[in-house]
């Protein structure tokens, strides 16, 4: 079965820019993204897909637009979670987890789409101020007493692991202008994309200067039976256990009836 292409349609619509542009003082540019749905369901055969978000610029200066000097970065940020990074070292010939650092509020996933390579949009200082991009996510250890060297090493490892799993991803050229004001962002959703409330954020830049940010929540959930089972296991864990046992007994008994030979 082909991976379904999830399309989240635009709701927010561009305000006509030309009327305002004729006046002396142009109103400031704005950015909007609209989600036609506030939730995306993962089915049982989910193996990763692209999520498309449409958006528009308000009061775009036609001059700047024409020269392609507007840039948009769209981020889909997963729910924050406490995450432990463990490191294995060799003890008696075996590879054993020996060190660990716990991080607070780590976005479970972080998918970025940009109009151009990040270094062409703005300078590193702006990225770091906005905490924008995989390398600039604020990652803070829970216990501030850890040695700075260790924290640095484990922070890098955390990013590397998330990138390897496809959970932290950058898609250069993932945002495309369809017209002067309308754009489309294509974000990658990894097979193990975490369920929960994600935040879609869009950043607008003009000539390398950050102008505005907008955001909208998006819930990713498991569809159908899988989600029911997951919720059942989390909320009614005792009953779930009893159910699992009864299912096993029933299967064993039916198996005996079907295959009995004595």
């Amino acid at each position: 079965m082909l991976a379904p292409r999830l399309v989240v349609l635009m709701l927010g619509f561009l305000l006509a820019g030309h009327a305002a542009a004729q006046q002396e003082e142009a109103p400031p540019e704005g950015i909007q993204i609209g989600l036609s749905t506030d939730s995306v369901a993962i089915t049982s055969d989910f193996t990763g897909t692209n999520l498309t978000i449409f958006g528009a610029l308000d009061n775009a200066d036609p001059m700047v637009s024409r020269q392609g000097r507007y840039d948009v970065i769209v981020v889909l940020e997963g729910p924050p979670r406490t995450t432990v990074v463990r490191k294995k070292t060799r003890v008696l010939g075996m590879w054993i987890n020996t060190e660990s650092v716990e991080f607070k509020d780590v976005p479970a996933s972080y998918s970025v789409a940009l109009t151009r390579p990040p270094q062409d949009i703005t300078d590193p200082a702006s990225y770091s101020r906005l905490a924008l991009g995989v390398d600039n996510i604020h990652l803070r250890p829970l216990d501030s007493g850890d040695a700075p060297m260790t924290v640095e090493e484990f922070t890098a490892a955390l990013r590397e692991q998330k990138e390897a799993a496809g959970l932290y991803a950058e898609n250069v050229g993932g945002v495309q202008f369809l017209s002067r004001t309308l754009f489309r962002a294509t974000l990658y959703l990894a097979p193990h994309v975490p369920v929960g409330t994600h935040k879609a954020r869009a950043f607008l830049f003009r000539n390398g200067v950050f102008l505005r940010e907008t955001s909208a929540p998006l819930t990713i959930r498991k569809a159908g039976v899988e989600q029911r089972i997951f919720e059942f296991a989390q909320q009614e864990s005792f009953l779930y256990g009893v159910f699992a046992v009864l299912l096993a007994i029933l299967t064993g008994w039916i198996g005996r009836l079907v295959f009995r030979r004595d």
């Binding site: 296991a233 864990s237 779930y240 256990g241 198996g255």
Partner: peptide
């Protein structure tokens, strides 16, 4: 199974069921 499910939420019935069905048939 019940205690693991209650304490750790680590029992996957879908996985267990597939293994059981295969197992019961294979055993014969």
């Amino acid at each position: 199974t019940i205690v693991h499910s209650t304490a750790n939420q680590t029992v996957d019935v879908v996985l267990a069921f597939l293994l059981m069905v295969g197992g019961v048939a294979g055993a014969q």
